[in-house]
């Protein structure tokens, strides 16, 4: 099996601050990889670079398409990258307002990606949107409601439905449970876990929530000051951390 995404030698500085310093990683189909680390460790920057939203100063990110062709992400044209972002890739933002159209109904939000890739049958689009609302545990009767009427947790689930409707193979998630209440987080994490397993998605998830990483991720990357200081099987990194920083990170969490 070949990697869906490969990155090597990624480097980027913000002034004197190294945001990425020699980062390499591979993501395989169906694999959930969490990037953990404190604020400012470079994990969100890494996500933005991997997804082509930000350009590194050095290094390369390569994406493999479903036919096996390899593309250098930062050499792709904008049109190609956009097409990729609405077909084979998805991006779930921390703030659902960044990923949703707040003045478009729930159904329209889910339907947009379908229409962007050429769906032109209203009835089918609507049926697909209703089905996805059901999958993310939102009452399909609310298909015509505006997202502003939804709670934060529902908005986040709507964003996930909108992202997954075109069946991407690789999804980037930036702190998807970040702004939510603890009780809501648990439900969302569980839903993400189930969808990821059902659809066989590969996911790169940035989080500072160690418990979330343990629940969702097969593999963990620990970042500090732009470097990956430790990586490996999630339970091994968390139960037998080797690097000083990882030990500190794990020690500061209660029973993760």
């Amino acid at each position: 099996m070949s990697a869906l995404l490969e990155a090597s030698g990624l480097a980027l500085r913000f002034g004197a601050v190294p945001a990425l310093d020699g980062v390499a990683l591979e993501i395989f189909p169906g694999e959930v990889v969490a990037i953990v680390g404190e604020s400012g460790s470079g994990k969100t920057t890494l996500l933005r670079v991997l997804s082509g939203m930000m350009r590194p100063e050095a290094g390369e990110v390569r994406y493999r398409d479903p036919e096996g062709g390899l593309h250098v992400v930062h050499e792709m044209g904008e049109a190609e990258l956009r097409r990729l972002h609405r077909t084979d890739w998805g991006f779930v933002h921390q703030n659902p307002r960044d990923g949703l159209r707040m003045r478009v109904s729930a159904g329209g939000n889910i339907g947009e990606r379908l229409m962007a890739v050429g769906a032109r049958h209203y009835g089918n689009i609507r049926a697909e949107a209703a089905e996805w609302l059901r999958r993310v545990e939102i009452d399909p009767a609310r298909i015509d409601d505006m997202p502003a009427l939804f709670s934060g947790g529902m908005q986040q689930r709507l964003q996930i439905a909108r992202t997954l409707v075109t069946r991407p193979r690789l999804v980037f998630m930036d702190e998807p449970t970040g702004g939510l209440d603890v009780s809501v987080q648990a439900k969302l994490l569980d839903m993400i876990r189930a969808l990821v397993a059902d659809l066989g998605l590969a996911v790169v998830i940035v989080t500072h929530d160690i418990a979330a990483a343990r629940l969702l991720a097969h593999r963990l990357l620990v970042m500090r000051r732009g470097q990956v200081v430790e990586q490996g099987l999630t339970d091994r990194v968390l139960d037998d951390p080797q690097h000083e920083y990882t030990q500190l990170l794990v020690a500061s969490v209660l029973a993760a």
């Binding site: 490996g232 099987l233 339970d235 091994r236 139960d239 037998d240 080797q242």
Partner: peptide
């Protein structure tokens, strides 16, 4: 046991 399972390195 944990070593055998790969839970510890």
């Amino acid at each position: 046991m944990r070593l055998l399972y790969g839970n510890y390195g």
